[in-house]
Design a protein around this nucleic acid. Structure first.
Length: 216
DNA sequence: AGCGAGATTAGCT
DNA sequence: GCTAATCTCGCTG
C-alpha cells in the first residue's frame, strides 16, 4: 500500500522518528544565545552498537567566546578548546571535576568561539541502555539525562569518542535533528554552576519539563 | 528540601 | 597548587 510512497532515508541510520531531519550547518551560524534558544525541542541522536538512543533537548546555556569570562574560549585558543574556534555545528566535549564530561555545540563562523552547552534532555528511546550506562534502574527516567554530566554518561559521550564530531552528519554516531516539535514556551535564567558573569541570563529551558537539571 | 563534602583529573580563563 | 560549565550520598530539620 504505502511502500511506493516511503522515501529512502538520505542517511545511514534511519531515524526512529521518520519525519526528523538532521540540523544543517547554517542552523549553528547565529550567536550562541539564538542557537541555544533554537536548540530547545531538537533531538540528539546517538548510535551505540547499532542501537539508537535519542533525547529531546529541554535545557541549554549560551557561552560567548572571547567576550565571556565564563567561557572556556575566554583566554584564547588552546589545545583543549580549539574546536570552538573552528566551523560551527561541531561537538566540543570537555572533562570537568575529575569525573564528568559535558557536551557543547559550537556555533558562529570559524574564528568566533561561541558555543551552547547541552544541559538536559528528555529521553525518548534507548532508555534501558541509558540506565545501564548510568548504573541506575530504568524506572526513574527523570534521573537519566537531567544534567550535563548525566546526559553524557547516558549517551556514552567522552572527549576521546566525540570531541570534534560533526553534529550535522547523519552518518555519524552523534548528530542533532529536528522532528518538527516546537516548545510552547521558553524561559530564560542565569547560568548554573559558574562564578564569573553568573548573573547574565543565558540559560534557556522548556518550563515545567520534568527533565531539567534544576527546576526554575 | 536543602546543605556540605568527597570523588578525581586537566588546565591554568 | 588551586580551580572547575558536576553528581551522589549522607546529614539535618
Amino acid at each position: 500500500m504505502e511502500h511506493h510512497q516511503n522515501p529512502q532515508p538520505q542517511y545511514q541510520h534511519a531515524l526512529l522518528t521518520p519525519l526528523a531531519t538532521p540540523l544543517q550547518r547554517d542552523f549553528f551560524l547565529p550567536a550562541p544565545d539564538r542557537v541555544a534558544r533554537a536548540l530547545l525541542g531538537k533531538l540528539i541522536v546517538r548510535i551505540l552498537d547499532g542501537e539508537q538512543l535519542t533525547g529531546r533537548i529541554v535545557e541549554t546555556e549560551a557561552y560567548f567566546g572571547l567576550d565571556d569570562p565564563a567561557a572556556h574560549a575566554y583566554a584564547g585558543e588552546t589545545a583543549r578548546n580549539r574546536i570552538l574556534f573552528g566551523p560551527p555545528g561541531h561537538a566540543y566535549v570537555y572533562f570537568i571535576y575529575g569525573m564528568h564530561y559535558c557536551l557543547n555545540a559550537s556555533c558562529e563562523p570559524s574564528g568566533h568561539a561561541g558555543c551552547v552547552l547541552i544541559r538536559a534532555l528528555e529521553p525518548l528511546s534507548g532508555l534501558a541502555t541509558m540506565a545501564r550506562l548510568r548504573r541506575q534502574p530504568a524506572s526513574r527516567p527523570h534521573l537519566l539525562t537531567s544534567g550535563p554530566g548525566k546526559l553524557c554518561q547516558a549517551l556514552a559521550i567522552t572527549r576521546a569518542d566525540s570531541n570534534g564530531s560533526d553534529l550535522t552528519d547523519p552518518n555519524a554516531s552523534l548528530f542533532f535533528a529536528d522532528d518538527g516539535f516546537r516548545p510552547a514556551q521558553i524561559a530564560v535564567t542565569p547560568r548554573i554552576g559558574i562564578s564569573k558573569a553568573a548573573d547574565h541570563p543565558a540559560r534557556f529551558v522548556i518550563p515545567h519539563s520534568k527533565f531539567l537539571s534544576r527546576a526554575l
